[in-house]
Amino acid sequence: MKRKVIQIAGSTQLVSLPRKWAKKHNLMRGQEIDVVEDGERIVVSVDSSPPFEAAEVNASNLGAMIPRCISAFYKRGIDSLKVNHDNSSVVGTLHSALAKDTVGFEMLEQGENYCLIKHVGGVPSEFGAVLRRIFLLLNTMSDECISAFEKENYGLLKNLAFLEEANNRFTTTCMRYLNKLGAPEEFCKIGPLYLIIESLEQLGDQYKYICQHFSKIEKERTKLRKDVLELFKRANQLVPLYAEIFYKFDPGRVVLIRETRNSVVADAHTLIKKEPNYAEFWLVHHSIVLAQQVFGMVDALLVLKL
């Protein structure tokens, strides 16, 4: 369909809407419509609400993957999910899954061999605030870890489990937002932003694993050598550094991430040759993983910011 551009008042240009389309949607004089720029196209719509999406899955053979599958449907932006099954034990697993990361997902109907889950939380609107909260949570987890090791009190690490659960909820909410509504205006692409948020969720998992490993040896009061603790501190410096660059992009500081990661990995290999004890070995291991994970988010950051 072709339309001619009408020039009025010097800088204003108008294009008429198809009459058939306008009548179908009962457009009236003065009514607001949504206009979205999409490259060389302009998309005009009368309703900015995201489309309702439904899905159906058979959970009979999913076993331990049921919670991950429910989370995947949530992140995808599904509004109504019918879960078929041939074993009543699936229902309990579903309830447990819904109590974790899928904010707004509720089981509204339960039959003999199916359950109906619907999203009742509305459309999330505070993407930017939630994303900042994720970075703040990770900074807190980093600080709490270092404090526990400096005080040689591994029991303090148990509190990280609660922060990691909150991190899961926030990252899952952001991923659903992107799949449902697209990237906010201040970000140019969905792909790299989604990857960064998914990586931030995995970064929180690393602190959970640290908690799990060291809670097992809490009573042993194993000493940590100073050089091992300093390595862990350097690796953790990358977490707030990445957040700073994300909100105030500076190519020079991106180079600092690479240099810090390289030095952490090199020094970790040297420390492993010194036959560390059990606790030191795990802390060196987690130092490498943390440094690698933060560095792994750099490419997505460059795509987003350059």
Rank of each mutant, 00 (worst) to 15 (best):
E198K: 14
L256G: 07
R234N: 15
K180P: 00
Q202P: 03
E185T: 14
E186Y: 09
V254I: 13
R253Q: 09
I196G: 00
L256D: 12
L241Y: 02
Y242W: 06
N236C: 10
E220T: 13
L195Y: 11
A243I: 11
N168S: 10
G204N: 07
P192T: 05
A235E: 06
I245S: 05
R258K: 14
K180I: 03
Y207G: 06
I257R: 03
C174H: 02
P251F: 03
R169Y: 00
F232Q: 01
G182Q: 05
Q237M: 14
F249L: 07
Y209K: 11
V239E: 04
D250H: 09
N168H: 09
C188Y: 15
L195D: 12
I197C: 00
T222F: 12
Q202V: 10
Q237K: 13
L195M: 12
M175N: 10
T172N: 08
I190K: 13
E230G: 06
V265I: 13
F214M: 07
F232Y: 10
L224P: 02
L224A: 05
D250G: 07
I196C: 01
E185H: 15
E165Q: 07
I257N: 05
E201H: 01
V254R: 08
Y209Q: 12
L195R: 10
V255E: 14
T173P: 00
K248Y: 12
A183V: 13
P251C: 02
E201P: 00
A166W: 02
Y242M: 08
L229W: 02
E218T: 05
T172L: 05
L238D: 07
N168C: 05
V254L: 10
C174Q: 01
R221V: 09
I245A: 06
A166S: 10
L238N: 06
K248R: 14
L231P: 01
R169V: 00
I197D: 00
G191M: 14
K219S: 09
P251T: 03
L238C: 07
I190L: 12
K223I: 09
V254A: 09
F246T: 07
F187A: 04
K248S: 14
R261G: 13
R225K: 10
V265L: 09
F232G: 04
D250F: 07
E218K: 04
Y247P: 05
Q237E: 14
K208A: 12
P240Y: 07
E230H: 08
K180G: 01
V264P: 03
E218D: 06
I217A: 05
L181S: 14
V239M: 05
G191N: 13
L256K: 13
R261Q: 14
L203S: 01
S215T: 09
E164Y: 00
L178F: 08
E185Q: 15
I190V: 15
N167A: 09
F214S: 02
G252L: 11
H213K: 14
P192K: 04
I210R: 00
E185L: 15
V228D: 05
N236V: 09
I217F: 05
M175H: 07
E244V: 04
C211R: 08
R234P: 11
R258S: 13
H213E: 15
E259H: 12
R169T: 00
R258M: 12
E185S: 15
R169A: 00
E220K: 11
E164T: 01
E201Y: 01
P240L: 04
P192I: 06
E164I: 00
T260R: 04
C174W: 02
F170C: 07
Y207N: 04
E259Y: 10
E220G: 10
